[in-house]
Nucleic acid binder design. Structure first.
Lengths: 153, 153
DNA sequence: GCACTCCTGACCAAGAAGGTCAGGAAAGTC
DNA sequence: GACTTTCCTGACCTTCTTGGTCAGGAGTGC
């Protein structure tokens, strides 16, 4: 139930790429690493994964670098998280819809399904364009406006 | 972004305890393990953690066993998950409210806060009593009624 | 005193997390 | 064609987590 460094890095790097999309030129890994303070070699592995998932493209050599494969408003945070962390909200490494509970835990399946749905309701809605512009979807606004959303429990 | 076996086991065992609350007698670990098909020795460690967090109580010896420290409708799934997995939705092991993002990732903090809030909106609402009775809070009903909540992505 | 049951710490194998290192392979420049 | 640049890839590393098992100790009840 936690967000890995990899996922965090991936989204941040992708946000930089989204912001650079106007430039019409590839962005070097080094620049991404510096802009977001991410270990370069680690970031390269992450970018490679994003590339394999069709989220990012790249070219080598001088004038090379990375860019988004699609417009920033068509790439969601959920996609990026899935690319580097795998499926969201799996239980014991199996998807909640495939689990069968016995006895008094029978309705637990519905709870895990709801958990996944609630995660999706945020992650699938926020695009890289939203993230860069700061104009986040209303669902985020609603969730973050409650005071106790910002405090630990 | 996944639910560990430990958390799953913990909630299931707690659900059994909730159902047994009417009996007015402690439930043996062995019975919990069998009812939910959980490795006994592993379960004992989990129950110990729940005990340390004040969720469960226990007595040793003949006629010993475990029981809930509070009424089932006062114990939430969130509490149990926190007891065995630690804080919900931490990013790189730090709470989202403490993270400062730079550059184009500035608004990512709000997204992670929203993620945590959305998880809480489910986990803090569902009590063990809800789980056992099957009368889940409306928020769960809403989230699980969408068809695509039950399919993988 | 004995059986029963929880309590606790040690241990363990496998995998993930969070990286680093070294070299190879395209792409552009001179 | 040589050289530089930058991505690409696999190997490796250390530490922590996951998902357990094992062995024994300590209360509790009869």
């Amino acid at each position: 139930m936690r967000v890995s460094a990899k996922a965090d890095y991936a989204v941040r790097a992708a946000a930089e790429l989204a912001a650079a999309q106007a430039e019409e030129a590839p962005v070097k890994g080094e620049r991404l690493a510096e802009a977001q303070d991410i270990p370069l070699q680690f970031l390269e592995h992450i970018l490679l994964e994003l590339k394999h998932h069709g989220i990012v493209r790249a070219r080598r050599g001088a004038k090379g670098g990375y860019w988004l494969a699609r417009p920033a408003d068509e790439v969601t945070v959920a996609e990026i998280v899935r690319a580097v962390e795998g499926p969201i909200a799996h239980v014991q490494s199996t998807p909640p819809e495939d689990i069968e509970y016995r006895g008094n835990a029978e309705h637990l399946q519905a709870v895990w399904i709801a958990v996944r749905a609630s995660l999706r309701s945020v992650l699938e809605e926020v695009t890289l364009a939203d993230l860069v512009s700061g104009e986040l979807p209303t669902v985020v606004g609603e969730l973050t406006s409650a005071k106790d959303a910002w405090v630990a429990r």
